[in-house]
């Protein structure tokens, strides 16, 4: 049996999940999403990653990014290395792809802010 704290929503349900003969039982969840999360924690834990990437624009040294979908928990630092190696040279906007299909995981690294576009229009701030 495994104690799992659900991270799907702010409720943070505390669940117990167990696997026996390929059958997973979950107690303590309040919804289906919690159940799914518990199952995934037992079989293939997944997480999202949020970070920043360097830019070529001095007024916006870094641009916030995230993965467009969940990735295997074990690959977080691999993805971070990819994110660390990027430098954005065009004024991307929110939702634009920064790294396509990162490490063949089937998700993109996307920008999460329009700051580059806005600053491009406004020209600098304090």
């Amino acid at each position: 049996m495994k104690e799992i704290t659900c991270i799907v929503c702010p409720r943070g349900c505390r669940m117990q999940a167990a696997e026996e003969n390929g059958v997973i039982t979950v107690v303590g969840n309040s919804c289906k999403r919690g159940y799914d999360f518990a199952v995934s924690e037992l079989t293939d834990p997944k997480r999202t990653v949020c970070s920043t990437v360097r830019t070529a624009f001095p007024d916006v040294p870094v641009l916030p990014v995230r993965v467009s979908g969940e990735i295997p928990k074990a690959r977080i630092f691999d993805v971070m290395r990819q994110i660390g190696a990027v430098c954005v040279k065009v004024r991307l906007g929110r939702g634009d792809t920064v790294i396509e299909n990162v490490l063949d995981l089937g998700v993109d690294v996307i920008a999460t802010s329009d700051i580059l576009i806005e600053n491009g229009k406004a020209g600098g701030n304090i």
Partner: peptide
């Protein structure tokens, strides 16, 4: 210094 170095991100 910078969070991002050209060689890539950090590791725990």
């Amino acid at each position: 210094g910078k969070t991002k170095t050209p060689e890539g991100g950090g590791e725990a």
